[in-house]
Write a protein that binds this DNA or RNA. Sequence first.
DNA 1: CTTGCCGGGAC
DNA 2: GTCCCGGCAAG
Length: 372
Amino acid sequence: ERPQLRAGGPDPSALRAEAPWLGVQGSGPRAAPVTVPAPPQGPSMGGSFAGLEFALPQEPQAADLGTPGTWAGAAGLPTPSVHIPVPAQRSPPGKARLDEVMAAAALTSLSTSPLYLGAPAVVFSPEPGLEPWREALVQPTGSYSSSSNSGDWGWDLASDQSSPSTPSPPLPPETAHFLFGEPTPRKRKSSVQVVFQCLWKSCGKVLHTASAIQRHIRLVHLGRRAEPEHSDGEEDFYYTELDIGVDKLTDGLSSLTPASPEAPVPPAFPRLDLPSLLRPLALPLPPVLSSAAPLQTCHSDHTHQGCLAPVRVDAQPTEGRATMPALPSKLGANLRKPRGDAKKCRKVYGMDHRDLWCTACRWKKACQRFLD
DNA sequence: CTTGCCGGGAC
DNA sequence: GTCCCGGCAAG
């Protein structure tokens, strides 16, 4: 028994429905954020992007994460090899080894976030978040100036967005910071703290342990008993893990700690101050992804979407009541499947031979004969 | 404009 | 359950 879909609230069913589909669609550097090397497909990077070097986070740039400024420094090095996460060419669909990618993602999450032990399902739940990462990766360098993201998708507790003087092209430090998807590498364990934020609409509660947040969700949002044994794991869909620097934590979370359990107001998410950088993205990114665990990225495509379902909210980016920033106002439409390019019964047989159509076509449903 | 099909209604 | 269609989004 699932709770009814609350308007504007997280929708686990949508997530579940989308997950397999995402898996099918998954191609290219899907889990590249951490372990998957640049996909071999597509034009060679060496040609058009000579001089640039992949900065895929094989080994997370420990020193950079959490301190975006470092990136500016890296970019300023005299060497032509700039640490810019040169996006891989979009690879043909279906070529990626999904199992590899998934395995990599799973391993990464396990190795980087011991706290997952307390929330096993989280490994799955953030699945839809892969996209921004991928989206960024597939952006050709040449077009990066108009490319994705400012790194401000998340709340400012997790990342320092204050680098107004930093030029954005070709790659703002924030972007690099974000792109690596692992802002809290193991090497900096000591200065990083993990918190768990409730994604429930208008909640945003932040707790320090997975069990606590699960309990919170069970009790407050799912209306269930607090005991974990009564859980079916659904609460995992409603929170996200955030890695934040201790200093930031102290600054930003002072009013969000469990000491103020009644506070319905979520952390003050930063507004998107670089909207132009977001333009190419089909979807704004779930804010919770900014600096969270590696898997906390969104996976979608220019022609596909749906990844936002689990964090769907109706909040407006600039409104105080917003639990999350900059989500599209009409996400419902994003759940619609993109039109396939296959000819359908209607087109093949024409209106004249409607009797030849498959039943679904006759009923104006998704064609079952000519699948995409 | 046409096409695909979601959402929902009628039965 | 089957069957149909209004209406929407994409092209």
